[in-house]
Design a protein around this nucleic acid. Structure first.
Lengths: 335, 335
DNA sequence: AGGATTAAAAGAAACGTTTTCAAAATTAAG
DNA sequence: CTTAATTTTGAAAACGTTTCTTTTAATCCT
């Protein structure tokens, strides 16, 4: 392990000042004779000089870093979302600092502070166990802009989401068209805003149809495959002819539970999900669900936060992405 | 957005020198009167002082950061692995810098350099599109220790893996016991060492059994669900009574392909996978596979690299974790 | 030729910490 | 009381950059 080579070493070898080297390596090469430029650039390669990140960030007051807080790396929706962020970040020369809160309040706080400590230039927060005002306080105090996904923003905040109200509504109307008026819903205990809206769109559509969904048909559980599996007996107990899983992960758990209960989808019972994770095409029967543009949500979020970082006082940005129903084979026509 | 508060500000407010503040905040509080200590600590809270990460790292020559390079965030095996890393890192107060190479050579290189640039203290590399010596060169030149997962290490390197040879062998013997001698394999084009070993264990066991697997029964494809799906026709064309998918993702793709071909698992054809991702219990029929301790591999990897970081010249570390066969319902008894 | 421009390069301050070393203040000892 | 020992504090250097300002060298113009 050789000692790290610094800009001073390089300058010395080039018989040139530190300033000169710095300038040349930072796009100001025009100011110098081509001979010097060539010499410095060559030497950089030869000596393997790479500027010290910390020294650089210290003085530039930015490390081009975006803190990203998500609930769960395991959930395919989020991993796709993450890849969107990554794609945009790489394009604009930022680096995402990825943190999974695992739905733990403690972890979320830890990572929030870690992001502050590491002087993230901005944050994308898709994890939501903490109170929004709490988050806002911490980040605001430290001058870190952030954007919230799937959660009610503080009044003045930037925001990107997909149209959840519409999504829920589309699903409901589809089910109604297929003759299902007797539905159960599996959702999480303390749903974040996006889930609430999904639910609302869904419930309202059924109400409008004159077939409201009674409260006891709304089952709560964890937002995971396991959660869906666990909730199956309770859902089945309400004798529905269709179940709406608030996300695809839950739907997959439901599939298993239903299978083990000896029932067939969609002949005995229909299921719809939400998210359109890649898996939904790989299970049997293929899942009818709402497509959310997870990747685009990622790229948009990244784009938005970068804009904000680079111009703190531009107008508030809000983007709402469209969703679509993708009809596959998990819903039966009845009557 | 208030101006950032520095240690100098705090010192001024406390009527005390910068040194004093620094010491007190860095575990050397014993050297000072309890009055001073109390005052400083209180003020830190009140003023919301948090040490500047870059200034700190610059002088300490470490940012307690571990670069993590994986092929694909989407693959559940890796996301579980990641969570193992995260768990250990948080315990030891490190932060993982997570990068997904997406199996792109270009990205991998980019992130490798990005890790160098950001002065990662060490790296965990589970992505393997690049040549090992190439990686070794870059990292070695910059004095960054690393550990390789699932890849042949450079002679002197630390290493953690699971026993792939054994895993392949177990699978083969299980299949043989179940009466399958007519098997196809779906693997990737340029398999990394771990995959090679899986394959070798598998193939050798069949050879030993007197029923060797002809080359044309080894189909190559991408290591994804889509890849498995795409490979189905080719695999089926060899008329096997069982297929070994080199990982569970491929197995899931196979499930879909087989279903669409109108065949039933395991009645018409058996399938085994490798990894034991959580999904394998949620598909129908449940997948028989080899369990790899992904999470533990993560914690071990993190532990190992941290040890290495904190003591560059300790002896080489190697851990090989055990694997086990988990028998579910995707294999039929034949004869 | 000699002042005025312009081009090329260098000097020095600043970023916010940690840490070494020495000085000042306090306490204990004789 | 003085001196020594101990506790507490502070000044300044160092980490590796970027950038603002200044100096030096080269070129131009009448």
């Amino acid at each position: 392990m050789t000692k790290k080579v610094t800009i001073t070493d390089l300058a010395a070898r080039a018989n040139v000042s530190v300033t000169t080297v710095s300038q040349i390596l930072n796009g100001k090469a025009a100011r110098f004779s081509s001979k010097t430029v060539a010499k410095v650039k060559q030497l950089q390669k030869d000596m393997g000089y790479v500027p010290d990140f910390n020294a650089q960030s210290l003085i530039r007051k930015s490390g081009r870093t975006i803190g990203v807080l998500i609930p769960n790396i395991n959930n395919p929706f989020f991993s796709r979302f993450l890849r969107g962020i990554e794609a945009e970040a790489i394009k604009q020369n930022y680096v995402p600092l990825i943190f999974g809160s695992d739905n733990s309040q403690e972890r979320e706080t830890h990572y929030l502070f870690e992001s502050v400590r590491r002087a993230a230039d901005g944050m994308i927060i898709a994890s939501a166990v903490s109170d929004v005002n709490y988050i806002d306080n911490i980040l605001n105090q430290n001058g870190i802009p952030y954007i919230l996904i799937d959660q009610a923003p503080v009044a003045k905040g930037d925001r990107v989401d997909a149209n959840n109200l519409k999504g829920g509504e589309m699903l409901a109307n589809y089910l109604i068209k297929k003759g299902h008026t007797n539905v159960a819903v599996v959702c999480s205990e303390k749903p974040t805003l996006n889930l609430q809206q999904r639910l609302e769109g869904f419930v309202e559509a059924f109400k409008k149809n004159g077939t409201p969904i009674p409260d006891e048909r709304i089952i709560t559980t964890q937002l995971t495959k396991q959660g869906g599996y666990d909730a199956t007996p309770a859902a089945l107990a309400t004798k529905p002819n269709a179940i709406f899983a608030i996300n695809d992960e839950i739907a997959i758990g439901l599939y298993r539970g239903i299978e083990e209960a000896g029932l067939k989808i969609p002949e005995d019972i229909s299921v719809v999900g939400y998210d359109d994770i890649d898996l939904s095409e790989y299970i049997y029967p293929k899942l009818t669900t709402i497509h959310q543009p997870a990747f685009e949500m990622g790229t948009n979020a990244a784009q938005m936060i970068i804009k904000r970082i680079e111009n703190q006082n531009q107008p508030i940005q809000r983007i709402s992405l469209p969703v679509s129903l993708v009809e596959r084979n998990s819903v039966n026509q009845i009557d």
